[in-house]
Design a protein around this nucleic acid. Structure first.
Lengths: 190, 190
DNA sequence: AGACTTTTGTGATGTATATCACATTTCAGG
DNA sequence: CCTGAAATGTGATATACATCACAAAAGTCT
């Protein structure tokens, strides 16, 4: 499917835009391709864009002082990714975004999003609901992290994203679950 | 300060409404008072409202199968609370909201919020930014939970809400941090 | 295919935190 | 002010998980 159609279908689930409105909306996106392993946002960067995933898989992650990695999100097609704290506040990135596989994305600047939200009410409606859903998902994950052990969280993750199992190394899955790769390995080999 | 002024100042930080618009906005809120210990939303309820805290302190929490409590949020004045998953999706509540102290709130229905968002663009703008901020805060807490030990999280919490120390029992603070009350007690007595 | 890198498995050991049990203190209501 | 309930402190023990170390297996590139 063409990027434009792909985005259109995604938006249509939350907001009804006329064809003209959607054309206007789409005109602000830049189509970009990345290779596996490439960095899209690195710690310390000024963050001015967010990314809608067309194909491939990104990871959003934080590296602590001991160089340990924590994954906030695996971004698959139709997901959005950025360092939203930095993007919204103007602060430097503390969170990185990388390509786990070759990836195709649509890139949108913060300024353009705000301009569109301001000009077209239904576009603001779309973005409100996108964040509403993200907020609810984030609360759910918080609860799961407090309530469930690593094995339970692992099964939850695979149920939600079966595709991940084949695409991403177990080290990364461990970094998402918040356990060591050794523990994750032992979870399903004993 | 009057509830109306209090809400007006809160909104003004994100959206510029005319006086007429704000009067319209305010007209949808119901002013309610609760006693310490009262339940506002209980597991299994149909959730149709969200609550803006004027005074006092609420807790939003989940009880697991072993009757263990996990606190998602302490809601202080100017904070909003509800079971947003249930409120947005129409599902039954899985999360509870209770009063830790006597509390005054403004109550807004989901239907009225959506009506207002639809009628007045700037109101939708306000709600988009409210959730944007909540989303970013939630991601930060997720990272902290994965990255930092209980002591670190405890200090972080007290730094952010010094008031909590005197208002809420340590058991509840432990339930927010995701540790047992015994462990929390030992953190600052040894 | 061969060489090198990345990923994964697994034992041994250490550590933060949970759980259980009970004592002590603090608080709220009659 | 007294009394029972709620909140807190603290020892003993259990457990999930981390860390370190090294080996095996699987990918990747020229």
């Amino acid at each position: 499917m063409q990027p434009k159609e792909f985005l259109k279908e995604h938006i249509a689930k939350t907001a009804l835009l006329t064809d003209d409105e959607f054309d206007y909306f789409f005109s602000f996106f830049k189509h970009l391709s990345y290779k596996k392993g490439q960095s899209i946002i690195a710690e310390g960067d000024k963050v001015e864009h967010e990314f809608f995933v067309l194909g491939g898989c990104l990871k959003t992650f934080y590296i602590n002082d001991d160089l340990k990695m924590f994954i906030l999100q695996f971004a698959m097609p139709t997901w959005w990714a950025s360092d939203y704290n930095a993007l919204y506040s103007g602060a430097k990135a503390t969170v990185n975004v990388d390509c786990i596989t070759d990836a195709e994305v649509l890139c949108l600047s913060n300024a353009d999003r705000e301009k569109m939200c301001n000009n077209i009410h239904r576009i603001e409606h779309f973005f409100r609901w996108r964040t509403n859903k993200g907020y609810v998902a984030s609360q759910k994950r918080l609860l799961s992290l407090m309530n469930n052990d690593a094995k339970h969280r692992y099964e939850e993750l695979l149920e939600q994203y079966p595709a991940l199992y084949n695409i991403v190394p177990k080290t990364l899955i461990a970094a998402y679950l918040g356990v060591s790769r050794e523990t994750l390995s032992r979870l399903y080999h004993s």
